[in-house]
Design a protein around this nucleic acid. Structure first.
Length: 256
DNA sequence: ATGGCATAATTGTTATGA
């Protein structure tokens, strides 16, 4: 199974690139974030024409997550079963794997209300996982976590040290999610770090390789043991009309 | 300290991102 996660930064404005990415990589499952629109404006026909089912959790203007799949997604669940109106989590069974696509809040600035919401969201996610799943299941949590787990994933650590992406409090909150029962699958294949998935549109972020790895694939141990490769499609960040995030692609060996 | 750039909702400007 080939799995991709990508923050597309508007699925409508990125549609041509998304279809090209699907053609290029032929993933079995794709977790998308930042759709930036309600489900009614999701480009379902184009995605289906490319050969994919789509489970969509949209919202006006902001956020929005989806799971695309070659096979029909089952047991689709939007959100965490509470009253939060922000569309940031969708889950579905893809064959025998529970797949979750997550868009963790950015947090704006350390100490702000949005930062508190980010920390609380990660805490809610940990509780949700504990309530709904077992680390013994085959579960993969993918998405834009808006957290660099350590400085090996940051090209210029000093510059980002006090940011909402690298602050110790948010790293601790993400570590609590991971400690529920996940392996950082990308890290398994790139133990030394130095591979990034996001570059700021501003200040020549990509041109100067001022990158950070924010997009993660967290799999439970039995599933993580089956991964054979993990890579960032850095070329997708190039040129006019790119998302500020590049796709992350992970391959798991087939069990059947 | 601020802005840089991109997108949506909306038509001039604001909210948000990371």
């Amino acid at each position: 199974m080939k799995l991709m996660t990508w923050n597309v930064n508007s699925v409508r404005s990125r549609l041509q690139r998304l279809v090209a990415v699907l053609d290029r990589h032929e993933p079995d499952v794709v977790c998308l974030q930042e759709l930036k629109g309600i489900e009614e404006v999701f480009p379902r026909e184009a995605i289906e024409a490319a050969g994919y089912y789509a489970a969509v959790y949209g919202q006006k203007a902001y956020n929005g997550v989806a799971i695309l799949s070659r096979t029909e997604p089952e047991r689709i669940v939007r959100g965490m079963g509470d009253e939060d109106p922000q569309a940031r989590l969708i889950a579905a069974d893809i064959r025998d794997v529970r797949v979750l696509s997550a868009y963790v809040p950015n947090g704006s600035e350390v100490g702000s209300e949005k930062y508190q919401y980010k920390l609380a969201w990660l805490k809610r996610l940990t509780a949700h996982l504990a309530a709904e799943y077992s680390p013994d299941d085959k579960v993969v949590l993918c998405g834009d976590f808006n957290v660099a787990v350590d400085d090996a994933d940051v090209r210029n650590p000093a510059k980002w040290a006090d940011s909402v992406l690298c602050h110790p409090t948010v790293r601790d909150a993400l570590e609590s999610v991971r400690a529920w029962g996940f392996v950082d699958v990308f890290r398994k294949h790139h133990p030394a770090g130095g591979v990034y998935s996001w570059w700021d549109y501003r200040r020549l972020g990509f041109q100067t390789d001022d990158g950070i790895r924010l997009d993660h694939v967290y799999a439970t141990a039995s599933l993580a043991a089956e991964s054979t490769a993990a890579d960032v499609d850095r070329d997708e960040r190039k040129g006019k009309g790119a998302s500020d995030h590049a796709p992350v692609v992970v391959t798991f060996e087939d069990r059947h």
